[in-house]
Design a protein around this nucleic acid. Sequence first.
DNA 1: TTCTTATTGCAATTAAGTCTCAATATCATT
DNA 2: AATGATATTGAGACTTAATTGCAATAAGAA
Lengths: 149, 149
Amino acid sequence: MITAEQKFEEFLKSKELKYTSERKLIIKTIFSFNKHFDIEELFERLRKQGNNVSRATIYRTIPLLIQGGLITETLHCQDKTSYENIFNKEHHDHLVCINCGKIIEFYNEKIEKLQEEVCRQHNFVPIEHRLGIKGYCEDCYKKIKGEVK
Amino acid sequence: MITAEQKFEEFLKSKELKYTSERKLIIKTIFSFNKHFDIEELFERLRKQGNNVSRATIYRTIPLLIQGGLITETLHCQDKTSYENIFNKEHHDHLVCINCGKIIEFYNEKIEKLQEEVCRQHNFVPIEHRLGIKGYCEDCYKKIKGEVK
DNA sequence: TTCTTATTGCAATTAAGTCTCAATATCATT
DNA sequence: AATGATATTGAGACTTAATTGCAATAAGAA
């Protein structure tokens, strides 16, 4: 069973790039919190651990992690660009609460199959897809229903 | 049959906002080119027409057009935030070619229904959704297949 | 250990988007 | 048509995210 770190190291080797201590720290840190994150969060986390990796290095490492298939940019939910770990995870889509920001992950086989069908109909070769549904989670909907009108 | 401009005017009136000449120019210009656009394109277009509307005003008008249901932010495809006209258009999703940038719009009733079902299962109240599939269009796939390995 | 080359951090820079504020335009009312 | 309350505008300063150039440094193959 290969780890995320090993996968990243192999990816770098295949591109003749170096597995530096900064890159090790970045990937370790990302995989130590199992949720969506943005650059600032990652930077802060590293700083609190006493690992001063510069923002520039973080910005330069993110595209490598994406190319290596370890993380992906998430839907542009609010304002900031954020990322999520996709290593050893099944593909999934998102329900995003526009009130509290909660993210519910789901996977629906039938939707996946239908997407493939749509692609075939248009002679389109899919590489990646994203489905995001924005709305209100159960709790927030209850709250808001009370307030409005 | 109501026009986009009328709908916008009514929306503004309902919010006790003013239908200024700048806002008229902006909506007219957006609806004169029937495709996805970004702020810079809109700004340039207005400037070439001899209508100098400031960037600040454009940035302030965009959220009003979104709230009024006239445009929507498109998937964050490349780098820039872009928008598309949704007035008098059926809801649709996108196939986006990552080589040439072509956008194919599609609508699939079954996918829509399944999304509703997923929301019900999670007691989630959907407001809006976006499905974008990135990949290669027919032409680009043919080209690339020749080049790679 | 040596040496080539990638990488880093810093600080300057670019770019998108927001904000402030005085001047102005809108539009309901007179 | 004139008035007046208030929303809106443009200019430019400002904020924040992200990128870049460059000298110093680290990786890792030989």
